[in-house]
Amino acid sequence: MNSVIPAGPRPPAVRRRTGWHRLPVTAVQRLTNDAVAVTLDVPGALRETFAHRPGEHVVVRHHRANEELRRSYSVCPPPEDPGALRLVVARGTPDGFGVHALTVLAPGDHLELSPPSGDFALPERPGAHHVLIAGGSGITPLAALAADALRTDTACRVSLVHSVRTAADALLADELALIKDAFVDRFTALHVLTGEAGTLLDGRIGAGNLPRLLAALSAEPGPGTTFALCGPFGLTAAIRAALTEAGADPGLVRSEPFTLGDTPGGAPPAPVAPPLPEDTRVTALYDGRRHVVTAGPGDPVLLDALLRDHPDVPYACREGICGSCRAKVLTGEVATGPQHALDAGQLAAGYTLTCRARPLGAEVTVDFDA
């Protein structure tokens, strides 16, 4: 019965993750009072560029007056068209792009986007029980990951838990019902309401109610159970800690925070390093081109030096969260401050976030296309 969830096109093995492209908006669909789904048309010449894997995101660049806004959004295609380029945009801050999307954006307008990128994916475990836990708009990558896992691994099970304030705030509930209809024996979706309290499906998810929630899903931590978390940093960090306490293998827990939210201390601080004794020559490779700038003692991080002369350089959140400014250090050394986008393996392979990185010598080369 899973014909309602067709397979989508897969991106090529090697592709460029930088550059900007203007794409026309074909639909703006109201999902809740504070969120819309924006569908964009991808011309034939860019089909390969914008082919995407579940869990990937794009960066939207929006210009207004003398200001540029950038925001990262997960690609969230509808279940019946997994190849579609669709973004779910929430209202967010009063002066952000979300307000523009909800009040002004219309079919026929154009948005400027970067190609899809990102490493958020389910652990490779054929036949596993994948438990996906979302907070708010963190449902967007997880819904795509759920449909893809059910479609490609006929032996797996998927349980999706969506934490929202009220039932009216539950994004994509109708689409999750379609996935349930297609995979009735292998997919479960639950909504946990944070605006209420008193039962298993009410209140904030944490150490207090997570064990009972997992028991209800028959999802005891073990080698046959994987976890994927997406939501505000405080939520994902609390659930990850609770899962570790419950005995989950950290290697089978994947997470992608999309905002620091009300995390104490706000954004991670820039890396602390002694002032540079002299200017540093910074070579940046991106979008197939080479750019050279000079970083001085007054530049907190590499990204600040690059943006002075090259406003097209990739970035979005500047909080060490989204990973859009990820680059590989080819020569020289950098100090990378606190961040939440790169794992230990990526750091060991030489990757850094330029919004968190400060050069430590006279020369450094970073590759955004790597």
Rank of each mutant, 00 (worst) to 15 (best):
P314G: 08
A242C: 00
A106H: 13
S3Q: 13
R10M: 12
L217D: 08
L85P: 03
A237C: 01
P9H: 10
E80D: 15
V301S: 05
G320C: 07
I139R: 10
T166M: 04
R308N: 01
D148W: 15
A128R: 00
G234T: 15
A51R: 15
L200D: 01
A241I: 00
T188E: 14
H191Q: 15
V14Q: 11
V364A: 03
G296C: 11
A348M: 12
P274W: 00
L87C: 08
R16I: 01
T140N: 09
H310P: 02
D148A: 15
F227E: 12
A237F: 00
D367V: 02
G19W: 01
L342T: 09
M1H: 14
H21Q: 07
T188D: 12
R71Y: 05
H340I: 07
P275W: 10
G8L: 05
P107T: 03
L214P: 11
A144I: 09
H130D: 13
A35C: 09
C325R: 04
A216L: 10
C355F: 03
V364C: 03
F120P: 01
A106E: 14
V301Q: 04
E80R: 13
L353M: 03
G350Q: 08
L193I: 09
G266H: 07
T226M: 02
A128T: 03
E124H: 13
P54W: 02
P107H: 05
A219W: 08
E256N: 00
A13L: 14
D153W: 12
A143V: 15
R204C: 09
C76V: 09
T352K: 01
T283K: 11
R326I: 00
A128E: 01
R326A: 05
R289D: 13
V42W: 01
D185K: 12
A27W: 09
R22A: 14
H52P: 01
H291V: 06
L342A: 10
Y286E: 04
A167H: 11
L23G: 04
T166N: 08
A341Q: 04
